[in-house]
């Protein structure tokens, strides 16, 4: 019989997927800012992912396939984390905005709302609003 390490839970997989996406966003402008990396570590900590796991994901981000969270508000929290990462260095670059928009579409929001969502999230991130608050607001609006 084959022996394999016990599979991790779906929620962990979802979180891993987010982290991989955050890493990809950090690399999208070809430079890695220290603040961006620190933020990723912070987000990993917030979501209960250990440093070692994060680092193993960093080593092989290709091996992580994308799994979406089931609930919309969870998805929004993912997207807001992406927005926070964009604002980590204080500048919104075109590539970063484009990637966020793509992610919004991937997360199955409608095409016509995509830009609006991007703008909203970036605004909130710029203002430094806490994730929990953003999620609350969004939930109320749905």
């Amino acid at each position: 019989m084959e022996n394999f390490t016990p599979s991790i839970s779906v929620s962990s997989q979802v979180t891993h997927s987010l982290l991989a996406r955050l890493l990809a966003l950090a690399y999208v402008d070809q430079e890695v800012d220290l603040r961006e990396v620190e933020l990723i570590y912070g987000i990993a900590l917030e979501r209960g992912v250990s440093k070692e796991t994060l680092e193993s994901i960093m080593l092989r981000p290709h091996s992580v396939s994308t799994i979406l969270p089931s609930t919309p508000h969870e998805r929004v929290s993912h997207l807001y984390d992406l927005a926070r990462l964009i604002l980590a260095d204080g500048i919104i670059k075109e590539e970063e905005r484009a990637m966020l928009r793509r992610s919004v579409l991937l997360y199955e929001f409608t095409e016509e709302n995509a830009d609006g969502i991007v703008d909203f999230l970036l605004e909130q991130a710029q203002a430094g609003v806490a994730p929990a608050q953003v999620i609350q607001v969004v939930q109320e609006s749905i």
Partner: peptide, 13 residues
């Protein structure tokens, strides 16, 4: 804090 438009965050079916 600015509020999102209602229905902004509805998912695509």
């Amino acid at each position: 804090m600015a509020l999102p438009k209602p229905g902004l965050f509805t998912l695509k079916p």
